[in-house]
Amino acid sequence: MSPSGPAEPRRRRFGIGFFFRTLGLIFVVVVILGLVYLLYPRPMLQSEPIEAPQAAAQVDHLRPVSDFDNIADLRARSVALFEEAGRVIQNPRCMNCHPRSDRPTQTDAVRAHTPWVSRGFDGGGEPTMRCSTCHQNENIEASGVPGNPLWHLAPIEMAWQGKTLGEICEQLLDPARSGMSREELLHHMAEDELVGWAWNPGGDRTPAPGTQQEFGAIIAAWLDTGGACPQ
C-alpha cells in the first residue's frame, strides 16, 4: 500500500516526539517486566486431607398427640391440636401452593413465583406454560427445581395466604370450599403424596416441621376431638 511518490521531507530524528516515543517505550518495557514478575508462577497449594464437616441434622418434631391429653377441655384440646398442626399448615412449603391469587409463591420467603406462571384450568399451569415445563416427578438435585408426580396448585377456594389459622381451619371443614369430607381431609393431610413432599422438599428449602406421620396423627386427633377451630 505504499506506491513510490515524491520523497517525504525527512523528519528530525531527535525531536520532542522521539523523546516521548522513547520514554513511552521504556515505560511499556518496564511495565511488561513488572507484569512478568507479578505473573511469574509461584508454587501452588497441594490437596491435603480435610475432615468432612459434620452435618448437624436437627429434626424439628411436632408434639406427640399424648402431649395434649392433659388439656381437660375437649374443645381447648382440639384447638391446641390444630394450632400445633398450624406449624405445618402455615409453613412456606404448604402456603406456597395455597396462594390467594392465580400465581403461586415460592421459597422460604413466600415470594411470588418467578418466572410468571398462572394456575390454568386444572391448577397445573396454563396450556402453554404447564408446571411440567420445569417441574418433574421428583426433586431435581442438579437444578434445585422441586417436583412431584401430582405437582399442582390448590384450588382458589382453598387459598390460605392472607388468612388467619382460624379462617383456614373453618375453610378446611367446609366441604363447599375444601371439596373434601373429613375422611378425605384426613387422607389429604396424612397420606397425600404431594402434601408429603413438604417434608422432603429438596434443594435448600426448609422442610415442614416433623414428619407427615406425626402431622397425620395430630390432624386425626384434632378431628377426633371435634375439629374445633381457633378464634
Binding site: R130, S132, T133, C134, Q136, I140, A142, S143, V145
Partner: peptide
Amino acid sequence: QPMRSCTLP
C-alpha cells in the same frame, strides 16, 4: 411439549 432440559434428568 416445551421443557427445560437443565432440569430434565
